[in-house]
Amino acid sequence: MLSVVKRYITNSAEAEDTLMEGFVKVFAKLDQYQGGGSFEGWIRKIMVNEALMSIRKNKNRYPVDIDVAFDLAHPDETLMQLGVQEIESLIATLPTGYRTIFNLYAIEGYSHAEIALLLDISEGTSKSQLSRARAQLQNQLTALQNERLEFCR
């Protein structure tokens, strides 16, 4: 669960605090678990919510973009070949707003409508933030590759 929280909160100390708060909630609301889904999934949801609350407490805002989502036609093939460590480092480079929405959509599997409800933003904003997050990930990857090429030369 720490890795889940750390994807949202890059600061280790903050992530640990959030994890602890999350577990307090898990124990406090244990009687509310009705066994509908997996127990791990239930805890994961609590942790994600706790992480979002922590972000909201610290920043209380997500950058609001125009409600027009642009889409990158095709992702770089290299993105498919990244290891876990590289993926995490790449996601960590994103600004908080982009990172949150990318995590919720791409990793947790929430829909744009659900994200809009969770973060109190419009669906359009969620879509546009995701597109920008993806563009930034690709740019970061390209920059990383160029650095490596430079280093090899």
Binding site: L19, M20, D71, L72, P75, M80, V84, I87, E88, A106
Partner: peptide
């Protein structure tokens, strides 16, 4: 040619298998 959904799926799969040790003293 791959699309972003496949990237998302691949990353989701990789990250869901990842576990991290809880720091000492947290429990």
């Amino acid at each position: 040619m791959k699309d972003w959904n496949s990237v998302d799926e691949k990353w989701r799969e990789q990250l869901s298998n990842k576990s991290e040790d809880i720091p000492e003293g947290l429990w």
